[in-house]
């Protein structure tokens, strides 16, 4: 399925990011088309999580440009509050608000930020919860849920804002192995519905199944960008080969 002729939703041009003197991202270029699923791979510390965080304004950048829907996300005049509503993000450690119930967690953004009608949001939330199989946990507190359940709720919370793109930052890394599947299935379902996504993960099988393109980053640079089949069977660079070998016993 080729989505390269779809509209470009997100464009990253020559992105540079430094912590003090250490370069974390060193000239990243990327175009994400509407409906496309990009999986970002790379050894730990390569800058892939930082890349996602830059897209959501959680990190400052030192050079380059990010354009979302044709508007630049660089500079002091960016309305992050507005932009972040269109960019959903899911974190490694769920980060549900512990003092709110599941439904309060989900409703907070749509009602307080987007000022939408409670009833309408409630209907949407109910539908989404049903989809992820958690409609009976509406009034639970996060502490009463398993890791996998919490992560599915976190996904629903982001989805309920009706974002145009979803960012997943190692969302299964903190989970028990038997809970990984339930979360990945939800993301796979989103891909089928045509949600634009950028996913950082260490689940290689999942990456191959869900991705339209694989972005392989090492030492802050894009080493390889290819279709999953090609990347996993016939990686072009030595670095990517080494990386893939780690996952084989």
């Amino acid at each position: 399925m080729n989505k390269e002729n779809h509209q470009v939703l997100l464009e990253i041009k020559d992105l540079h990011k430094e912590y003090d003197t250490r370069t974390v991202l060193d000239g990243i270029h990327l175009r994400v088309h509407k409906g496309e699923v990009i999986v970002v791979l790379g050894p730990s510390g390569c800058g892939k999580s930082t890349l996602l965080r830059c897209l959501n304004g959680l990190e400052s950048i030192q050079g380059g440009d990010i354009q979302f829907d044709g508007e630049s996300l660089i500079g002091p005049n960016v309305d992050w509050q507005k932009t972040r509503q269109k960019i959903g993000m899911v974190f490694q450690n769920y980060e549900l608000f512990p003092h709110m119930t599941v439904i309060e967690n989900i409703l907070l953004g749509p009602i307080k930020v987007q000022k939408r009608e409670k009833k309408e949001v409630m209907d949407q939330a109910t539908q989404l919860l049903e989809k992820v199989g958690l409609s009976d946990r509406k009034d639970s507190y996060p502490r009463q849920l398993s890791g996998g359940q919490k992560q599915r709720i976190a996904i629903v919370r982001a989805l309920c804002m009706n974002p145009e793109i979803m960012l997943f930052d190692e969302v299964t890394a903190a989970l028990d192995p038997e809970m990984v599947r339930e979360v990945l299935d939800v993301i796979l379902g989103l891909a089928k519905q045509g949600m634009t996504m950028m996913i950082v993960t260490h689940e290689m099988g999942f990456a191959q199944a869900v991705a339209d393109r694989i972005l392989f980053i090492d030492e802050g640079k894009v080493c390889e960008m290819s279709e999953p089949k090609e990347f996993f069977t016939n990686p072009k660079t030595e670095r990517a080969q080494q990386f893939l070998n780690i996952f084989q016993f």
């Binding site: 509503q85 959903g88 974190f91 907070l108 930020v113």
Partner: peptide
Amino acid sequence: KTQIESGLSIGLSQMQLIRYVILPQAFA
């Protein structure tokens, strides 16, 4: 810090962040 980022990521303003996320947790 990640709770704050989580609040920011759903578009909360600084005041909303204080009111809905930070103070209730800090208070407890």
